[in-house]
Simulated scan of single mutants.
Amino acid sequence: MAKFDWKKIREQAKTKETYQVKEKMWTNRIVKIIIITFLTIVIVGSLGSYFYINHALGPVDDKNEQTVEVTVPIGSTTDDIAAILKENALVNNQFIFEVYMKLQNVGELQAGHYEFSKAMNVDGIIAQLKAGGEPIFEDVDTTITVIEGTTLEQIGELIEEKTPYTSEEFMTLVNDETFIKGLSEKFPTLLGGLLDIEGLKYPLEGYLFPATYDYLAGMTLEDLVTQMVSTMNLEFQAIREDLDNTWLSFHQVLTLASIVEREGITDEDRALIAGVFLNRIDVGMPLQSDITVLYALGEHKELVTLEDLEVDSPYNLYMYTGLAPGPYNSPSMSSIMATIYPTYSEYYYFVADLDTQEIYYSSNIDDHNALVEQYVNPYFESDESQAESEEPVDEVTE
């Protein structure tokens, strides 16, 4: 029978137990380290994600208040809008913005023209997109009616209202020398030498004939303006022989007719007024029309003051004699013909009754001043700034 060494066996068991205890302790430590490491990663990751997302949803530059013009086209999706904003550097992260909009269930955002700044956060941008921006003009067929006496700037405003083109784009085009030279080649007898005239405020002022024009969707601005000048050319060609009745060039006819347009209403009065102005030119008297002062000032006013009369512009015919460098507006054919065929008289003055618009004429300053006192001054007796002239032509305001 074998003899067991119980002492040795006990020592081995004790050694094994000790090893198992140590192994368990190390296992627990490793598990704890793994758990702590995992939790640390999770916490750090969560904090990092929080700060990252918070930054992504915040302003790109909270100190930059300068606005950026952005257009959101009709039919844009949230992803499209996110791309547009990222392209304009208005959001920090396109993907997070897309996800945020979907999580917020913002619904349909409105198309339009917007002004955002880099100082706006995502919530501010979304709020503005919900509220809507300036409507996008839908390019459709329409008509544009240029009424008699309309200035070039007013035509620009009309075009902006009726077409996708802005008034600034229109004014840039009608003052572009290359474009005007091209028109001169198409209509040489009408526009030849136009760019050689000194002092013109707007070369094409007066050459866009007042009429109704068809605008077709997609029509270029160049084609639209050319159509208006072409109509003037047709009218001009029809009356070329009539110009033999006047010593004025057609450009000068347009210039004087544009003043007559705003001073008279009936054909009879327009012919008489044209005659008064020509009488003044013959004797070297300034035309002294308030219309010329207002054009020189570039503004509309109910009353021209003494200070206004001092505006130094070749278009101010209180300050300068003769005719201005060019027209003040687009005159009607009625005013053009009245200028070509004026009614000659002994009159050098006229004034309009501001109530009835009836015009009274006189041949001397005393009679004229009496008419002004009777028909004009009662309307402005309380205004100390009323303009007075030694030789006023009229006191009719636009």
Score class of each variant (00 low, 15 high):
residue 14 K to W: 14
residue 27 T to W: 09
residue 33 I to K: 08
residue 35 I to F: 11
residue 38 F to Y: 11
residue 38 F to L: 13
residue 38 F to D: 09
residue 42 V to W: 10
residue 43 I to T: 04
residue 48 G to H: 15
residue 53 I to F: 07
residue 59 P to G: 05
residue 61 D to T: 10
residue 63 K to H: 15
residue 71 T to C: 08
residue 76 S to L: 11
residue 80 D to G: 02
residue 82 A to T: 01
residue 82 A to M: 00
residue 94 Q to H: 07
residue 102 K to P: 02
residue 108 E to G: 03
residue 113 H to C: 07
residue 115 E to I: 11
residue 119 A to M: 07
residue 121 N to D: 13
residue 125 I to N: 01
residue 127 A to L: 10
residue 128 Q to L: 05
residue 128 Q to S: 09
residue 131 A to L: 07
residue 132 G to P: 04
residue 132 G to V: 06
residue 133 G to F: 01
residue 138 E to G: 08
residue 143 T to P: 10
residue 145 T to V: 02
residue 146 V to T: 08
residue 153 E to C: 05
residue 155 I to C: 02
residue 160 E to G: 00
residue 162 K to M: 03
residue 165 Y to R: 01
residue 168 E to I: 01
residue 176 D to W: 12
residue 180 I to D: 03
residue 186 K to I: 04
residue 188 P to E: 03
residue 195 L to K: 07
residue 196 D to K: 03
residue 203 P to A: 07
residue 204 L to G: 04
residue 205 E to A: 06
residue 211 A to Q: 12
residue 212 T to F: 01
residue 215 Y to H: 10
residue 218 G to C: 09
residue 218 G to V: 05
residue 219 M to V: 04
residue 220 T to P: 01
residue 227 Q to I: 04
residue 228 M to T: 06
residue 230 S to M: 04
residue 230 S to P: 09
residue 234 L to G: 03
residue 239 I to P: 02
residue 244 D to F: 12
residue 244 D to T: 10
residue 245 N to G: 02
residue 246 T to R: 13
residue 247 W to P: 12
residue 251 H to F: 04
residue 251 H to C: 10
residue 259 I to Q: 00
residue 259 I to G: 00
residue 262 R to C: 04
residue 266 T to H: 10
residue 272 L to Y: 12
residue 294 L to N: 12
residue 299 E to Y: 09
residue 299 E to S: 09
residue 302 E to M: 11
residue 306 L to F: 12
residue 308 D to M: 11
residue 308 D to P: 10
residue 312 D to P: 06
residue 314 P to M: 06
residue 314 P to W: 06
residue 317 L to A: 13
residue 321 T to F: 14
residue 322 G to D: 08
residue 325 P to I: 14
residue 326 G to C: 06
residue 327 P to E: 11
residue 331 P to C: 12
residue 332 S to R: 06
residue 334 S to L: 05
residue 337 M to R: 00
residue 339 T to Y: 06
residue 342 P to A: 03
residue 343 T to W: 07
residue 344 Y to W: 12
residue 344 Y to C: 13
residue 345 S to R: 07
residue 348 Y to Q: 08
residue 356 T to E: 08
residue 366 D to G: 04
residue 368 H to L: 04
residue 370 A to K: 15
residue 374 Q to S: 08
residue 374 Q to L: 07
residue 377 N to A: 05
residue 380 F to V: 11
residue 381 E to S: 03
residue 382 S to Y: 13
residue 385 S to E: 15
residue 389 S to Q: 03
residue 392 P to Q: 15
